[in-house]
Computed example of a mutant assay.
Amino acid sequence: MDYIELTLQIDADFVEILMAELAELGFESFVETDEGLEAYVQEELFNDLAIKQMLENYASRTAISYQFKKIARQNWNEEWEKNFQPIQIGEQIYVRADFHEPKSDFPYEIIITPKMSFGTGHHETTSMVMEHQLGIEHTNKKVLDVGTGTGILAVLASKLGATTISAFDIDEWSVENTIENVKLNDVSNVIVRLGTIEDEPHDMYDIVLANINRNILISQIPAYVTFLKPGGELIVSGFYEKDIADIETIAESVGLKKVAQLSKNNWAAVVFKYR
């Protein structure tokens, strides 16, 4: 499976909204650059006309130029390594690649090698979910990671003391990538599979993680609740602050109550408690 790389030269003020627009069109990986943005979509999901129409709509508001390039699977690591830098989340989490030097002064060090998978900790949505995880007791808890991407949230859950983590994604690369990252981090209690919430074997969890996007969350939150134990917590992200009200409305309709919220650069991450 090959990918299409979209390189955008655009004012920094428009980067975040274009990431959201492109996510709606199937793009799943993003790298912010000095010139704007690089975004990646599976070749089979690439809709040239829809993307160009969306970008042209912004041309009247700001200077914008773009190029498309096909990226073969075997070239992805080379492309990614050009841009990836280690990051720290607060004073507790350090995320790096295996070619970076470790830092022993962080309680939780996570090694990530993404292969076209979303979730390196760089994006606000991922880092905020991880911040929320730090504030939730994971010891001896069961965790469900919906749309696992690179597996970074599942790995953190394991390092925080969760007993069992079930992680799935609809993308084969994400599943392969999560399995690889789980091994890189010497984690043995993450079960990874290809699939959706609809075919998830029914079990009850203490924590459900879902860093996806607004539309999928609104559609699937009622399904997530069926996997939550009473008193369980749902952490969701992948949407803007302006979408919190819509997310909260659907969550409340199925017995969830908002208990925590983080915002960063207009993105949001919310924790709900079940009953």
Rank of each mutant, 00 (worst) to 15 (best):
M1C: 12
I4T: 14
L6C: 03
Q9Y: 09
Q9K: 15
Q9S: 09
F14G: 01
E21D: 13
L22S: 06
A23T: 08
E24F: 01
L25W: 01
F30E: 02
V31G: 00
V31E: 08
E32T: 12
T33P: 01
G36I: 02
A39C: 00
Y40I: 03
V41F: 03
V41N: 00
E43R: 14
N47H: 13
L49I: 11
A50Q: 11
K52F: 00
L55P: 00
E56P: 01
S60V: 15
S60E: 15
T62K: 09
T62R: 10
I64G: 04
I64Q: 03
I64W: 02
S65Y: 06
Q67F: 00
I71G: 05
A72L: 13
A72C: 11
N75T: 11
E78G: 08
E78I: 09
K82H: 13
P86Q: 13
G90Q: 11
R96L: 07
D98G: 00
F99V: 12
F99R: 06
D105Q: 07
Y108N: 06
E109G: 04
M116V: 11
M116P: 00
T120P: 05
T120Y: 04
T120D: 09
S127I: 03
Q133V: 09
H138S: 11
N140H: 15
K142G: 07
G147F: 11
G147R: 10
T148D: 11
T148Q: 08
T150Q: 08
G151I: 11
I152L: 13
L153S: 07
K159T: 12
L160E: 09
A162H: 04
T163Q: 14
T164Q: 13
I165Q: 03
D169S: 09
D171I: 07
W173P: 01
E176W: 13
T178C: 13
N185D: 14
D186W: 06
N189D: 09
V190D: 01
G195Y: 10
T196M: 10
I197V: 15
E198T: 14
E200K: 07
E200Y: 10
E200S: 01
P201G: 02
P201N: 12
H202T: 09
M204A: 03
D206S: 03
I207R: 06
V208Q: 04
V208R: 04
L209V: 10
L209W: 04
L209Q: 04
I212P: 00
N215K: 15
N215V: 08
I216F: 03
I216G: 00
L217P: 06
I218V: 14
S219P: 05
Q220P: 00
I221M: 02
L228A: 06
K229L: 05
P230T: 12
G231A: 08
G232D: 02
E233Y: 02
E233A: 05
E233Q: 15
I235K: 01
I235S: 02
S237Q: 05
Y240H: 06
E241D: 14
K242C: 02
A245P: 03
T249I: 04
G255I: 06
L256D: 03
K257M: 12
K258N: 11
A260K: 15
L262I: 10
S263H: 06
K264S: 14
N265K: 14
N266W: 02
W267E: 08
V271M: 07
K273F: 04
R275P: 01
R275L: 10
